[in-house]
Design a binder for these strands. Structure first.
Lengths: 161, 161
DNA sequence: CTATATTCGGATGACTTAATCCTTTTAATG
DNA sequence: CATTAAAAGGATTAAGTCATCCGAATATAG
């Protein structure tokens, strides 16, 4: 099975970049109640700093994270990891229809689309959604015993001479 | 479940635009052996003409379509609709890993990624792939008795006055 | 109350994907 | 053989997503 390029790079995930970043952070965020700096989170996971900051803001507005300004501020989980589902995170980042309403891109809502792939796609979509709804951050953490990100308060970017 | 915007519009499908356009055309292309003009295909489905032309070229190079130049030329299916699978089309347009190798975007191939969602995602991914591999263009046509695109040779864009 | 450290929010820039335009090549027809 | 009609292919533009920058707001500490 050959494939021909049209101009876009191979997609790394069915989710958009902000969603992937969000999940990467949430899965490794410790649940000990301490606030973590956006800057340090980004550094530890090697993600673009200012961009991740914006994503953390969104997660705060959606009630998934809790933010605190000023010195000793930062971000932490707003609820226990077992109370935050994968689905909730994805919906927060991608919107209410994370997989689009139609595989072929037809619009017109649930009813308006007469596309032939629709019935089969709905089945698969429901399986995806169900999986995401029953999987929590805690599940993800435990399943592979993820190491939480480091505890160091801050490294002042060690400017040499 | 609230969701916050970050700058991108709600995705209409998990596939890229060219893939959706390709499927839309293929599903409605008649299998009577006649060549159809890129221009007319685009007009009938209300898709951007020159862009669709490029996509048709790719499908030709992959052996899904057959093209013929000059007058009375155009595009037609290279094989019977029951011999062209959904998977083949998607792979042709999206590359060998249509869903990305990892939900969180980790790279490192099948083994290098220790992401906690991996096992469950692999299961779902296999279901998606299996569905696409066993679904042919013919299945899609029959399931909803799609009307093939019109037979008119060409309309010269009827410039009034 | 001042200084400092952080999130917040808007404006801007860079890069990727979508789409167009124009020239060349190929084939059919008179 | 000239004309015409179509796909093929490259260069260019437009739109969308990703990412950065900077000023404002807010909270802590001295």
């Amino acid at each position: 099975m050959q494939h021909s390029e049209l101009g876009f790079a191979p997609s790394r995930s069915i989710f958009h970049t902000p969603t992937r970043y969000a999940l990467q952070v949430l899965v490794r965020l410790p649940s000990d109640g301490t606030y973590r700096l956006a800057r340090c989170l980004a550094a530890d996971l090697e993600l673009p700093g200012p961009y991740l900051a914006k994503i953390l803001q969104i997660l705060s507005q959606c009630g998934i994270l809790e933010s605190h300004r000023g010195p000793a501020g930062g971000f932490r989980l707003h609820r226990a990891p077992e109370d935050i589902t994968l689905k909730e995170v994805v919906v927060a980042m991608e919107g209410p229809e994370p997989f689009g309403d139609c595989l072929l891109g037809h619009h017109g809502g649930k009813d308006g689309c007469h596309c032939p792939i629709r019935p089969a796609w709905d089945v698969l979509q429901n399986q995806l959604t169900a999986f995401m709804a029953e999987t929590t951050l805690q599940d993800l953490k435990v399943s592979h015993d993820l190491s939480s990100i480091s505890d160091e308060p801050d490294r002042p970017d060690a400017v040499p001479v």
